[in-house]
């Protein structure tokens, strides 16, 4: 009896090994391209966009506040020990806040949001996919990318930078509080060194990066959701993959923008 599945030989395996990643990347790029086309041409009605903004922005606030506070305090503790050896503890503010706004704030906030927002989006769209609701949208004349992806993409791209600013601010405040109240750093020096070493360029480069992190989270999450396999397991897999893939994507983008931004800052400040 022959089967519907093609007969597989080692050559098939090798072929699959090459073709599958290429197909995957191609599909993702095509998906992103379609999303951009809709973002720049036609937004869905506002009644579709608001819930997405609420889901991404408002519901993430508690997570981001807690994350920001702990990053700030952890940084203060770690840096204090090292600076004290060199008797530079008065410069703690500069070290902590520079790391916070340039690196750890944006990256860790994005990581948290990939877990909270990304997985939720993937699970939601994945459930719609496997229960034929995505097909139903299409049958009723709504473009699923315009209707489902664009609002979530806008939510992530607009609000994840904003949430990063919140995380930064909370982190700075928490580290100041901890440094002055517990570690005994002088408050005047703390701020003075912070102003001296943390430039507007540093702050905005952090926020700038988070725009791309937001886009990456939204695209990965929606793409995984759209390709979810049938069953509860398929939806769970889509959510897990979203976190893993977007985390790797975030680190990759962070590296890329790090290289790029350091070039720009060298060019700007010599």
């Amino acid at each position: 009896m022959s089967t519907g599945k093609l007969h597989r030989t080692p050559i098939h395996w090798l072929g699959e090994l090459v073709i599958q990643p290429v197909e995957f990347v191609g599909d993702f790029v095509l998906f992103s391209w379609l999303t951009f086309k809709w973002v720049f041409s036609c937004w869905p009605r506002s009644s579709v966009i608001w819930p997405a903004l609420y889901q991404v922005g408002v519901l993430s606030l508690p997570v981001v506040v807690v994350t920001g506070a702990f990053i700030g305090m952890v940084l203060a503790v770690q840096s204090y020990d090292q600076l004290r050896v060199m008797h530079l503890e008065s410069q703690l503010g500069a070290v902590v806040n520079l790391t916070l706004v340039k690196e750890l704030g944006p990256v860790l906030a994005a990581t948290m949001l990939a877990g909270r927002v990304g997985s939720a989006i993937a699970a939601e769209i994945g459930t719609m996919r496997v229960t034929e609701q995505v097909d139903a949208l299409e049958a009723l004349g709504a473009d699923p990318i315009q209707y489902l992806v664009v609002p979530r993409f806008l939510g992530c791209v607009l609000l994840i930078p904003l949430l990063t600013v919140v995380a930064d601010a909370i982190g700075i405040y928490a580290s100041w509080l901890f440094s002055t109240a517990v570690l005994g750093v002088n408050s005047y020096y703390y701020w003075n060194y912070t102003y001296q070493f943390v430039t507007l360029f540093d702050v905005s480069s952090g926020v700038f990066k988070s725009v791309f992190f937001g886009a990456a989270i939204a695209l990965v999450a929606c793409h995984r959701g759209f390709n979810a396999r049938a069953g509860a397991e398929g939806v769970g897999t889509a959510a897990t993959q979203t976190f893993v893939y977007s985390f790797v994507f975030i680190l990759f983008l962070d590296f890329l923008s790090g290289v790029l931004l350091s070039q720009i800052s060298q060019w700007l400040y010599g």
């Binding site: 229960t131 034929e132 609701q133 097909d135 139903a136 949208l137 049958a139």
Partner: peptide
């Protein structure tokens, strides 16, 4: 073309 889906596929939201 009107389509009645096997699972009804009503929008949950």
């Amino acid at each position: 073309i009107g389509y009645l889906f096997q699972s009804a596929a009503l929008f949950d939201s």
